[in-house]
C-alpha cells in the first residue's frame, strides 16, 4: 500500500549557497530588516542561522524541475470586495495606540526628502 514517493529523484542543485552565512551577511540583512545588531550579536545570529541553513541543505536533494511554486494552498480565485466606500473611521480611537500624534498626524523624527 506504500505510495510512490515524489522525492525519489535525488538530483542535487548547486544553487544553494555552498559557503555558510557570515557576520557581514547578517549585518547586511539586519540593515534591510531595520534591526540594530552589533558585531557580537551578528556573530551569534550568524552561528545559529548557519546551523539552520545547514539543515536546509536537504532541500537541494529534492528534484523540483517540473514544479511551480506554491504560495498558498488555496489557489482558487479569491472573493473580491464590492466597490462600496465606508467612511466610518474613528481617528481618535485609531490614534489612541500611537506613540506620538499631533494635529492628527503621526509624528516621526524629521525626514528630509
Amino acid at each position: 500500500m506504500t505510495t510512490p514517493s515524489t522525492l525519489q529523484s535525488q538530483t542535487p542543485i548547486s544553487s544553494i549557497r555552498e559557503d555558510s552565512i557570515c557576520t557581514t551577511d547578517i549585518l547586511e540583512v539586519a540593515k534591510l530588516s531595520r534591526l540594530a545588531v552589533d558585531e557580537e550579536a551578528a556573530k551569534n545570529f550568524a552561528d545559529d542561522i548557519a546551523k539552520i541553513l545547514d539543515m536546509m541543505q536537504t532541500l537541494s536533494s529534492v528534484n523540483t524541475d517540473n514544479l511551480t511554486p506554491l504560495a498558498n494552498v488555496h489557489e482558487a480565485a479569491q472573493e473580491l470586495r464590492a466597490d462600496i466606500p465606508n467612511a466610518d473611521i474613528d481617528r481618535e480611537l485609531n490614534q489612541s495606540v500611537a506613540p506620538a500624534v499631533e494635529q492628527g498626524l503621526y509624528l516621526v523624527p524629521q525626514v528630509i526628502d
Partner: peptide, 26 residues
C-alpha cells in the same frame, strides 16, 4: 526576521524561497 530577510534577499531568493515553494507543492 533575519533568516527570512536573508531567504528573500536578491541573491538567494530562487535558491531558497522559490525552491521551498516548489517543495511545498510536492
Amino acid at each position: 526576521i533575519l533568516m527570512g530577510t536573508y531567504a528573500l534577499s536578491a541573491g538567494y531568493y530562487d535558491a531558497y524561497y522559490t525552491k521551498a515553494q516548489k517543495v511545498r507543492r510536492l
